[in-house]
Structure formats: structure tokens, C-alpha cells
Amino acid sequence: MTASIHHKVINLISLFTVPILTLLDPKLFHLYGIGPSWAILFLLAWAIKYGRFSGAIIGLCLGLMVDEINSTAITQIPVLLILGWWWGNMGKRSLKIENIFNIGLMSWIGTIILGLSIWLQTILKYQEQELDSLLQWGWNNLLSQSIVTALVAPVIIIWLTKIWSRR
């Protein structure tokens, strides 16, 4: 029992790589100048492994971490929280989302929802007059980030869940 708590603490510490990766923004994973959403990748891995309640809390934590390093008042917390709950539910019902295609699809849908929420908040908060002017920016970010996240997801999430379960 103590050993499993100890492992969970170590796994929690590994979540702090999310802000570091977001800050580093490695060019290796760039698609059209935009990197994947690391918060989505770690959240999906965590929610699959530890269930809905833990997934929602980690979604909140990841949202707080990611919001801290962004300049604007736009928040990613609600979407990450809901996604953590949803994916945790799927993992608990053992819907076999641990297979490569499902992981890719889930991370793709998650990134799309996250991107849409950021886009909507930007429009509501900053650019009320000129909605058309943000179309190109929004579509470009939404599509490239979701595609690159879905491509990276199977590799990283399977690797992460293996590392976490090995301990």
C-alpha cells in the first residue's frame, strides 16, 4: 500500500514535465509552426490509468500549470477538467481505449474541444468587432495542433502508461 502511494507520488512529479515541454516547445514535433498540446497528452494517459475522479483533479492541476505560463486571461481549466472526467469514465468502463487508434482519436477530439474553447474565449474577450479577421488564425491553430497531437499521442501515451505501471 505504501509502495503504491510512493509510486503515485513519483508519477505525479512526472506531470511537471508538462509546463517544461510547453515552454521548450521542441521543434521536432512542430506541424506548420505549432506543437502538440502536452497537457492533453498527459491528461489522457493519466485518466486512462487512474479513473475519472483522479483524471478530473489532474485536469484541474494541468490547467492551472498551463494557464500560469500564458500571458492572457484565457483559461484552459474547465475543458481539461471535463475531458479528464470523460476519459476517466471511459477507462473505468474498460471501453478498450488503450488501443492505438482510439487513443489517437480521443486526443484529436480533446485537442479540438480545447482549441475551440480558446478560440471562443479570445473572440469574446478581445476581438468582438472583427470576427472574420480571426478565422485564419483559429482554423490554422485548431487543425495543426489537433493533427500533431493525434499523431504523437499513441507513442507518448503508451510509453507513459507503461512507465507508470512498471513501478
Binding site: D25, S71, Q145
Partner: peptide, 14 residues
């Protein structure tokens, strides 16, 4: 400059 994301959702440098 320690971090830069000139394109994407957040266009900022740190």
C-alpha cells in the same frame, strides 16, 4: 529569450 512561441494560440516570448 528563454521560451518562444511566435505562432499558435499564444503568441508570446518569455
Amino acid at each position: 529569450v528563454i521560451s518562444r512561441t511566435p505562432s499558435g494560440w499564444w503568441q508570446q516570448i518569455i
